[in-house]
Design a protein around this nucleic acid. Structure first.
Length: 493
RNA sequence: GGUAUCGUGGCCGAGUGGUCAGGCAGAGGUCUGCAAAACCUCGUACAGCGGUUCGACUCCGCUCGAUACCUCCA
C-alpha cells in the first residue's frame, strides 16, 4: 500500500499526496446522472474517469467503497417553474409514472456504462429512497440555525453562513460578487437573499412527486441528496468526492455549506472534477441540445457521425486525454482513437504467443522495467492516463519488433511485459478486446485448413486462388496477414 | 460584469526552464508475388508583444482569442 499517489484537489488547486483518512479503506462519492434522458458522451466522461480512479485505488490495494448516486427526484427545472420537477415534467409528457421514467433511464444508463466496461460502484443509492435521511439533514441545518422556513419551504441562509464560514471557497467565488451578480428571478420572493438555495420545496398541487415532511408535502432541494447519502454510506468524513466541473458551483459549493452546517465540519478531504467533452469547441450538454447519445455513437445513427464507434473506442478516446482537460469530439479524433486501439490490441494478440528466440539474452538495464515504472509514475501523477497509453505504445513497438525478429527480449523481460500490459490495459485502463468472441477450436481448425490450402497454392505461385481465399475471408471480416513464417489470421477488418 | 481555465505541428492530445511525448493522417525507405501488417527515417509545434534569465514553448506582465461556471446540466 506504500504509494506516492498525488491527486489534484480542487479545494487547494494543487496536487496533493493522497493519504486516506482510514487506510486501507477509501470512501469515494461521485455525482451520478439525473435519469430523465438517454446517457450521452458527456455522461461517459466522469463515469470512465472515476472508474479509472476506482480501479487504480483497488490495484494499489485499498479497500474502496465507491458510491455513485442516481438522481431521480429533486432537481428543479428552474425557479420559475414553481417547483416543477424534471422527472415529473417528463412523466406528464409521456403519460408515465415518474418512477417509470426514472427506472427506464436508470436501466439505460447501466446498460451503456456496462458496455463501456465501467465497473459498477459499490452502492448506487437513489435520492427517492433516502427521503428520511434528507429530511433529517434539513432538520440539522435548521437546528444549527442556518436555514429558515417560509410557507412550507426551507432555504439555506447564505448570508448568515458567510459570517462564520466561507461560501465560495471551492469555486473561488466571492460572496459580495454572488450577491451583486445573482440575477433577479421571479418566484424568489420567499428567499431572504437571491443567493440562498432551497433545502426543501413545498409542492404545488399539480406536482406529482411529493413526500410528507415537517414543513410541507414537497421535495428536497437540489444539493441535499449528496450530503445526505454521502454521510449515510461513507460517514461524516470521507476521502474523495468527484463529479463534473460544471457541478463545482453551485452544487458542490452548497454541499460543503450543508455539511458544515449540519455536521459542524466539512466531510470531504479531496475534491476531484473532470473536465467537459466539447463539440466544435463547445460543451456537449443537455441544455445546449448539442449532445450525441451513447446509443447513437454505438450505432452511428446521428447526423454528425460518419460511422459507428464501438464502446472501447469511446473509452480509449476518453482515456487518451487527461481528465482535467477538455476533450474535443470529432470524427477524425475518434477514428484516430479507433485505429490506435486496434494497433494496441493487435500487439496484445501477438504478445500472447511471443516467444524468446535467444535464451542467452539478459537485459540487466531493462527497458521493460523502465516502461512499467513510467506507467506507475504517470498514474501516480494525478491519474495521467495519456502518458500511460504513450508508454504502452512503446511496448507495442517492442512487441512488434521482437515478433519480426528485429529485436530480442529476455525471458524475464517478456514475462514482465506481459504482466505490465495485463495490469495496465485490462485492470487499470479497463480496456477489453471487442473482437467477436469466437475462439472455438472449431473455428481454429477450420482456419488452419483454409490457410494450409492457401499456402499450397502460394507455393505453386497460384496467386489467383491465394488472393481469392484472402478476399473471401476478408468479406467475412477475417484478416489474413502473411509473414515470413507463414500466414496468421485475426477476426476484424 | 464577476470567478476560473485554456490557447502546442494537418487532426486529437501529453509535457518541460537547456535531448524524445504518444496516437492518427502525410512523405520516403525495408520486407513482400501483390496487398495488408510490421519496422526504420522525416516535418524548423508551442496565439501575439514585451520582460526576467547564460538560455523560455515552459516563469512574469500586457494584448488578442476560446471555453466553463454565475439557472438544471457529467
Amino acid at each position: 500500500m506504500e504509494s506516492s499517489l498525488f491527486l489534484f484537489n480542487t479545494l487547494s488547486r494543487t496536487r496533493e499526496l493522497f493519504e486516506p483518512i482510514n487506510p486501507p479503506f477509501v470512501g469515494m462519492y461521485v455525482c451520478g446522472p439525473t435519469v430523465y434522458g438517454d446517457p450521452h458522451l458527456g455522461h461517459a466522461r466522469p463515469a470512465i474517469c472515476f472508474d479509472l480512479v476506482f480501479r487504480y485505488l483497488k490495484h494499489l490495494g485499498y479497500k474502496v467503497r465507491y458510491v455513485r448516486n442516481i438522481t431521480d427526484v429533486g432537481h428543479l427545472e428552474h425557479d420559475l417553474d414553481e417547483g416543477e420537477d424534471k422527472i415529473a415534467k417528463k412523466a406528464r409528457l409521456e403519460q408515465l409514472e415518474p418512477m417509470e421514467v426514472a427506472q427506464y433511464y436508470a436501466d439505460r444508463y447501466f446498460i451503456f456504462m456496462d458496455a463501456l466496461n465501467v465497473k459498477r460502484p459499490s452502492i448506487e443509492p437513489r435520492a427517492s429512497g433516502h427521503m428520511i435521511e434528507q429530511i433529517e439533514f434539513v432538520k440539522k441545518i435548521l437546528d444549527a440555525g442556518y436555514g429558515y422556513e417560509v410557507n412550507g419551504s426551507v432555504y439555506f441562509d447564505i448570508e448568515k453562513y458567510s459570517k462564520t464560514f466561507q461560501y465560495g471557497k471551492l469555486s473561488g467565488r466571492v460572496l459580495d460578487d454572488l450577491l451583486a451578480n445573482t440575477r433577479e428571478l421571479e418566484g424568489q420572493d420567499e428567499k431572504r437573499n437571491p443567493a440562498d438555495f432551497a433545502l426543501w420545496k413545498k409542492a404545488q398541487p399539480e406536482h406529482i412527486m411529493r413526500w410528507p415532511s415537517p414543513w410541507s408535502d414537497g421535495f428536497p432541494g437540489w444539493h441535499l441528496e449528496c450530503s445526505a447519502m454521502g454521510t449515510r454510506y461513507l460517514g461524516e468524513f470521507f476521502d474523495i468526492h468527484g463529479g463534473g466541473m460544471d457541478l463545482l458551483f453551485p452544487h458542490h459549493e452548497s454541499e460543503i455549506a450543508q455539511n458544515q452546517s449540519a455536521l459542524g465540519h466539512e466531510s470531504v478531504k479531496y475534491w476531484m472534477h473532470n473536465n467537459m467533452v466539447t463539440i466544435n469547441g463547445q460543451k456537449m450538454g443537455k441544455s445546449l441540445g448539442n449532445f450525441i447519445t451513447l446509443d447513437e455513437f454505438f450505432s452511428g445513427s446521428h447526423a454528425s457521425l460518419i460511422q459507428a464507434y464501438s464502446p472501447m473506442t469511446i473509452r480509449f478516446f476518453i482515456l487518451q486525454a487527461h481528465y482535467r482537460s477538455t476533450l474535443d469530439f470529432s470524427n477524425e479524433a475518434l477514428q484516430a482513437a479507433e485505429k490506435g486501439l486496434k494497433r494496441l490490441f493487435a500487439a496484445i494478440g501477438i504478445l500472447d504467443h511471443l516467444t524468446v528466440h535467444d535464451s542467452r539474452i539478459t537485459d540487466h538495464d531493462s527497458r521493460i522495467t523502465a516502461l512499467r515504472d513510467a506507467c506507475y509514475e504517470a498514474m501516480n501523477d494525478d491519474f495521467n492516463s495519456p502518458i500511460v497509453i504513450a508508454n504502452l505504445f512503446e511496448g507495442v513497438r517492442i512487441i512488434n519488433s521482437v515478433n519480426d525478429k528485429k529485436e530480442s527480449i529476455s525471458a524475464e523481460d517478456l514475462e514482465l511485459l506481459k504482466k505490465t500490459f495485463n495490469t495496465f490495459v485490462f485492470d487499470i485502463l479497463g480496456l477489453k478486446s471487442e473482437l467477436s468472441g469466437d475462439n472455438s477450436d472449431y473455428l481454429k481448425g477450420l482456419m488452419e485448413l483454409v490457410l494450409n490450402i492457401r499456402q499450397s497454392s502460394r507455393e505453386k505461385k497460384d496467386w489467383g486462388t491465394s488472393d481469392q481465399i484472402r478476399d473471401a475471408l476478408q468479406k467475412l471480416e477475417i484478416t489474413v496477414k502473411d509473414g515470413k513464417d507463414g500466414s496468421t489470421w485475426e477476426l476484424g477488418k
